[in-house]
Amino acid sequence: MNLEALTKAVGELDEEQVLAALKEFVAAGPTEEEAQQVVAACQAGMAIVGDLFEQGEYFVGDLIFAGELLTNAIEILKPVLGGTSSAKIGKIVLGTVAGDLHDIGKNIFKSMAEAAGFEVIDLGIDTPAAAFVEKVREIKPEIVGMSGVLTLALEAMKDTVDALKAAGLRDSVKVIIGGNPVTKEACEQIGADAFTTNAAEGVKICQRWVS
């Protein structure tokens, strides 16, 4: 298995080549360790995708396809991966905030964060502040991610941060907000630690927080 070529093919979103290579690899009966190396090569390919996105070569549609490609790749590799999963670099509790039903941005962020090694607990859409609080209390993540597309999401994000404060949990987590309406001013008003309209950048911010 040429790992560099695999990474490159993932980066180029060349699905045919990636899937053909992986099928061939699995058919040869590799060890679990070899399989982990292949997963790492795919993740490295996803990092290239993220970089190309930040450089304006790729766009959101390409990120969605990248997520799909990675899911399919892992699916092919599953039989040879065994039960062990690679160590997680941190936990993120993620959700689209109350009143907002949009989840495309959230899902892109999720697949990229998972590819970067995070364990992501996805609370879904229209998530009440209380659900964030409960989950944070339960699993003690390093990071809380809130997503929203509507301008009303800003209010809900503020309510959620306030609820975390009231529960005494705000200082134990970093809060990142993402989505169309978020701005620096909104971020300050909401009391989040970071904001982004760019999933790849969001993942980088999270990586810095746990490193």
Binding site: A98, G99, D100, L101, H102, P128, L152
Partner: peptide, 8 residues
């Protein structure tokens, strides 16, 4: 949605 706003 829960706030009464129609969404897609």
């Amino acid at each position: 949605g829960s706030g009464g706003f129609m969404q897609h």
